[in-house]
Amino acid sequence: MSMNDEYQPINCDDYDNLELACQHHLVLTLKLRSGEVVEAKAKDLLMRKKVEYLVVEASGEQRDLRLDHIESFSHPEIGTVVVSAE
Rank of each mutant, 00 (worst) to 15 (best):
E77K: 13
S2L: 10
E39V: 08
T80V: 13
D14W: 04
A21V: 03
T80R: 13
L18F: 01
N4Y: 10
L26H: 06
V51E: 03
K50Y: 05
L30S: 06
C12F: 14
L26K: 07
L46Q: 12
S72V: 04
R33W: 09
A85L: 13
L26P: 06
P9T: 01
L28G: 02
A40F: 01
E6F: 02
A58L: 03
D64I: 08
D64C: 12
C12V: 13
V82K: 13
N17C: 13
E77L: 15
Q62I: 14
D64Y: 11
V51T: 06
D13H: 14
A42Q: 00
G35S: 08
V38K: 06
E71N: 07
A40E: 03
I10K: 04
M1Y: 05
N4R: 08
K41V: 14
D13Y: 14
L28N: 02
M3K: 03
E52T: 12
V37Y: 04
G60C: 03
L65T: 01
V51F: 02
L20A: 11
R63K: 14
G79Q: 00
K50C: 11
T29I: 04
K43M: 15
D5I: 06
E6A: 04
Y53T: 08
Q23N: 12
R48P: 06
M47L: 05
E61T: 12
C12Q: 13
L20G: 07
P9K: 00
K31Q: 12
E39H: 02
K31T: 11
M3L: 15
M47Q: 10
L65H: 00
N11V: 11
K49L: 08
T80S: 14
I10P: 01
K31F: 08
T29D: 05
S59D: 15
Q8L: 08
R63S: 11
V56W: 07
L26W: 07
S59P: 06
K41Q: 15
D44F: 06
V82H: 13
H24Q: 15
H75F: 03
V82L: 13
